[in-house]
């Protein structure tokens, strides 16, 4: 049910959120005049609950909750088509990225599958320095309760020598782990 919105102007926290993501994306959401070209060219818009233009509209009105709860920011593939074609030069793709990071940090994970994929990917990098594709798929399948997802591809991949059971460890993997740790201690960017 779409209730009517009571607009009272953004709160201080909401204003701060918006200026944070604007800084992270190096763009200005006030420029958007809601023409819809971003949604029109977005290859994933068909699967989004709120198309990109609407996300920007929510941000313009300071409706941060709506954005954090949207599936759209998780579906965005960061293909950059929107940013390339926006007549006002708004970097929508970077804004969607920034919103996704904020949502992740706030624990508001609307699309677990995508979040788990990213987490699994980065875990591999943290521990081994490089992507551990087999581990990534395994982790992703298990954590999203899809144990047999892509199972039909597993054996063919192995036959073609395209997947190694064991991870590829680099010598400097401790350095890479430290990179992750240093960033974690830095807290929010």
């Amino acid at each position: 049910m779409k209730q009517s919105l009571k607009l009272a102007g953004p709160s201080a926290a909401e204003k701060e959120f918006i200026s944070r993501i604007e800084e992270a994306a190096e763009t200005d959401i006030k420029l958007c005049y809601q023409c819809g070209k971003c949604t029109a060219g977005c290859p994933a818009a068909f699967a989004m609950d709120s198309p990109p233009r609407q996300i920007i509209r929510y941000l313009q009105l300071g409706l941060v909750e709506e954005v954090m709860g949207a599936e759209s920011i998780w579906i965005c593939a960061t293909c950059e088509t929107c940013s390339a074609r926006c007549p006002r030069g708004v970097d929508i793709a970077s804004l969607m990225d920034a919103c996704r990071r904020e949502a992740l940090a706030a624990g508001k994970i609307r699309d677990k599958k995508v979040a788990v994929f990213n987490e699994a990917f980065l875990n591999g990098v943290k521990n081994f320095g490089r992507t551990y594709e087999a581990g990534l798929l395994l982790q992703h399948n298990l954590k999203t309760m899809q144990p047999f997802k892509d199972a039909e591809l597993g054996l063919p991949m192995m036959k073609r020598g395209k997947v190694s059971i064991l991870p590829d460890r680099i010598k400097g993997r401790d350095q890479v782990k430290k990179i992750f740790q240093r960033i974690e201690t830095m807290g929010r960017e």
């Binding site: 023409c35 819809g36 070209k37 949604t39 029109a40 198309p51």
Partner: peptide, 23 residues
């Protein structure tokens, strides 16, 4: 809504846009 892309399909042209009023 603005049109993001025009491309040919057979002898017709396809336009990709958004009706922003229905979203």
């Amino acid at each position: 809504g603005r049109v993001s892309k025009i491309y040919p399909k057979g002898d017709k042209l396809v336009l990709k846009s958004e009706d922003t009023l229905i979203g």
